[in-house]
Design a protein around this nucleic acid. Structure first.
Ligand code: ZN
Ligand code: ZN
Length: 815
DNA sequence: AGCACGCCGACT
DNA sequence: GTCGGCGTGCTC
């Protein structure tokens, strides 16, 4: 008898073992998607991790119900990768499956209630609830659990349903149905009997009394001649004919409708255009990268902004393709713009697949399958495309490798695509090339240590100068009363100058909304979120107060809840306020705002970029979003409204992050002519980071920071695991954290920091406690401590008072 | 993630 | 008293 260990799309601590029915033995494989039952009736699609002959002794197995596909949906490589992610990032394989598999390949059954017609309609034996449900069911014939909850207006509906089943009023079944649907399109074919002009001639006579059909036929013949194949939708649209007229021609057997399965992700021609030349600096860097790749698994390309890293990637991608391997090009979701897509498509045509959150679930399934069967040679995608089922990966490119969005925050698996990519690549024997103008300290350290290869490209493409940076003293200007609406005279003049020159301006402010909080000027009260310990941000556009931690929105309030006076004022400023002030100061300028709120609907990000390209926007105000990937020739001024807020986060990475941000956003200025200017407004103009930014001196920043990291035991010298505990009661979570820390401390000593409440101590009505565990870079020790942690977590959860404490480990946490 | 079971507060 | 919410445990 064979058994299969099955990964289910649930947060289960281990995989479940099912019996393989004899008839399935020949076809089932690791990676196969199977339908299994879990519990009394629920069915799920799970993935077979392994097949073996060890009968479990502790429980009796259920059989696998169904093999869902002809082919496995992942290769053993992916199963190995999932196992590593689960182990390294301290989560379940089910979590990984959930993140990896497209939604439409993940199935779970739905309970459906059916009316038992044999029961008749005598409801006299039923109580009120039963009567209500029975009547609804008689009317609707079938109901889902959610509908029953609405009808009965209560969440616990199972007791009522159970009664109705017992009384034989209803039947219940579990439906596990495929959700992925192939896309079908109707092609119109000409009856072969009418092929050729001679055969067609009698048709025109025949149709002389149906002029509309004649018209349609002529339109069809025209399309057939020009395009070879004719789609029904296109024919009707172009000819203006109705479906009825088409039906007429079909009934006369002149035309035929052929329903075909079509690709949602059509692959274009496999062609490669390398019609560009590298600069001598790029050539040199390319040669060095190649030499490095030959020796090391991972190479870091440190190239200043606008140095032409993408062209180097393109050359390397071409080489990988030529050796028959697949390529993965990862970049931050926000940098995955139409611009870069077009650019790569120009070079690689139809071999590229794009993968990001904008695709529909059906499209994702098709991309998944095309990556698996090798039709897609290159994937250009954000973090989650690392989890695609590559068949033979040769190269992973990680652009903007310093970017924090490569780390998944919520939910598990909280993986870092940079680190996970290195492991994934190793499974294929593939190479990894990471690129950035401002590498993560960890990466640069690894490169300097010789663990990674290091290639430096210090010259902007075309020998263009780096932008000139001016630090403006906010305090001094404030004293001189020169600051209007957070804009110093220097920044205002520079903006005016750019506008006069018909150039474009990018302004950076790291908070969205209008004001981060409201303040009662009479008593000092600040409106907070009901569920979170945080002030509400004022969004003027929506006229709402909104919590940036839980997303709850509240109507704007005018009256102070503490003293009753109507003296609430917006305090501090976000992008909306900047936008408004700009409009006031530069009334004729065309101003746009780019932040999470502004690009909420689907295509607005790309549209805004297009407007910028076409110079329909003069000034762009934005958050982090304006920092990445934007490449506009006409921008000659970048303004950072407040460097102070960037430099004052309570995070050991503040300086690194602030430098990266300012250097990257600076890089948007003067990308073609080298006449770029950057104005940074700051109160503390002496901050060392500002000087490093002024000099574009990454290495000085690195040297400065790395010493501190070593001294205080932070990455790259130590790995960090952040453990967050959550509970509805503050006292419970504090006690739990204290107890857990006391258990851990003997093993860790000073390598345990905390526990303490985070800055925002309550989110969504859960009180939080955090502790930080610092682990030396020694994989044995790391595994040992992780195992200890897991053990202590379960020990804590055994105690009845702490059962409902939620423990969230975050390995290699960022911030 | 469901779903069953059991304990406890609040309405008839 | 019972109804219904919610916390807790279990699913191969
Ligand atoms: Zn007040
Ligand atoms: Zn909130």
């Amino acid at each position: 008898m064979k058994y299969a260990d099955v990964i289910l799309p649930l947060a289960l601590p281990r995989n479940y073992t099912y019996a393989v029915p004899p008839e399935m033995e020949a076809t089932i494989q690791p990676g196969s998607r199977v339908a299994v039952q879990l519990g009394k009736q629920k069915k799920y699609a799970g993935i077979v991790k392994s097949i073996h002959e060890q009968a479990p002794s502790a429980y009796k197995t259920k059989p696998i119900m169904d093999l869902l596909d002809k082919e496995p949906v992942v290769y053993p490589t992916q199963l190995a990768f999932w196992e590593w992610i689960a182990q390294y990032y301290m989560c379940n394989e089910g979590d990984v499956l959930n993140a990896a598999l497209p939604a439409h390949l993940k199935l779970s059954s739905e309970t459906i209630l059916l009316y038992n017609d044999a029961f008749g309609d005598d409801f006299s034996s039923l109580d009120d609830y039963e009567y209500l449900l029975a009547e609804a069911l008689l009317l609707r014939k079938e109901l889902r659990i959610g509908e029953v909850q609405l009808i009965l207006d209560r969440s616990d509906v199972y007791s009522v349903i159970k009664q109705l089943i017992e009384k034989k009023v209803c039947l219940v079944y579990e439906e596990l149905k495929e959700v992925y649907k192939e896309k079908k399109e109707n092609y119109i074919l000409l009856n072969p009997a009418y092929e050729g002009d001679e055969a067609l001639a009698p048709l025109f006579d025949e149709l002389s009394r149906a002029p509309k059909q004649m018209e349609l036929l002529l339109a069809y013949l025209h399309l057939l001649k020009t395009q070879g194949e004719v789609l029904q939708t296109e024919l009707l649209k172009k000819s203006g004919a109705s479906a009825a007229q088409l039906k007429g021609l079909v009934e006369k057997q002149i035309l035929r409708v052929d329903k075909r399965t079509v690709d949602r992700i059509p692959m274009g021609k496999v062609e490669t255009n390398m019609n560009f030349d590298l600069s001598p600096a790029q050539e040199k860097a390319l040669a060095e990268v190649k030499a490095s790749i030959a020796q090391k698994q991972v190479t870091l390309l440190h190239g200043v902004t606008s140095s032409g890293k993408t062209q180097i990637y393109v050359k390397l991608m071409e080489e990988a393709l030529q050796s028959g391997k697949q390529v993965l090009y990862l970049l931050p979701e926000i940098a995955l713009t139409a611009q870069i897509i077009r650019r790569l498509q120009k070079h690689f045509g139809g071999q590229i697949g794009i993968y990001h959150s904008r695709f529909s679930n059906n499209e994702r399934v098709e991309i998944w399958n095309k990556v698996k069967n090798g039709e897609i040679r290159i994937v250009l995608g954000a973090r989650s495309s690392l989890l695609l089922p590559f068949r033979d990966l040769g190269l992973i490119i990680l652009d903007e490798e310093h970017d924090a969005s490569f780390k998944q925050q919520e939910p598990a698996p909280r993986y870092h695509a940079r680190d996970a990519a290195i492991y994934y690549a190793s499974l294929f024997g593939a190479k990894v090339l990471m690129g950035s103008a401002t590498p993560a300290l960890e990466s640069y350290y690894n490169a300097k240590q010789g663990k990674y290869g290091l290639v430096e490209l210090q010259e902007r493409f075309g020998g263009i100068a780096m932008p000139e940076i001016e630090i403006v003293d906010l305090k001094k200007e404030l004293a001189l009363k020169e600051v209007i609406h957070n804009f110093t005279s220097v920044l205002r003049q520079q903006i005016q100058r750019s506008l006069d020159m018909k150039k474009q301006v990018i302004l950076f402010q790291n908070r969205r909304g209008y004001a981060p909080f409201l303040l009662c000027t009479t008593c000092g009260w600040i409106p907070n979120c009901k569920q979170c310990d945080v002030s509400l941000t004022y969004h003027k556009h929506q006229d709402k107060l909104s919590c940036h931690y839980c997303g709850t929105r509240y109507p704007y309030i005018y009256t102070c809840a503490a003293c009753g006076s109507q003296t609430l004022l917006p305090k501090n400023f976000g992008t909306e306020k900047i936008e408004e002030d700009l409009q006031e100061m530069f009334p004729t300028a065309r101003i746009a705002r780019m932040d999470m709120d502004a690009i909420r609907n689907k295509d607005s990000h790309n549209k805004m970029i297009q407007l910028l390209e076409q110079q329909e926007i003069d000034i762009l105000v934005g958050t982090q979003m304006v920092v990445k990937g934007l490449d506009f020739a006409n921008v000659n001024l970048v303004g950072i409204i407040s460097a102070d807020s960037l430099l004052s986060y309570p995070d050991f990475r503040v300086n690194e992050r602030a430098f990266q941000l300012m250097e990257q956003v600076s890089g948007r200025s003067g990308r073609r002519d080298g006449q770029g200017k950057v104005v940074i407004q700051a109160s503390n103009t002496r901050h060392p980071i500002l000087h490093f930014v002024t000099e574009h001196n990454y290495k000085a920043m690195y040297e400065n920071e790395i010493t501190e990291r070593e001294q205080f035991g932070y990455p790259p010298f130590f790995r960090l695991v952040k453990v967050t505990l959550k509970h509805k009661k503050q006292q419970t979570v504090e006690q739990a954290a204290m107890i857990l820390a006391n258990w851990l401390r003997p093993h860790l000593g000073a390598q345990l920091v905390g526990p303490a409440a985070p800055l925002v101590g309550k989110v969504r009505d859960f009180y939080l406690q955090e502790m930080l565990i610092k682990l030396p870079r020694d994989s044995k020790r790391i595994t040992q401590v992780k195992n200890l942690m897991k053990e202590l977590f379960s020990q804590l959860l055994i105690e009845k008072q702490f059962r409902s404490v939620i423990i969230v480990p975050d390995v290699d946490c960022v911030q």
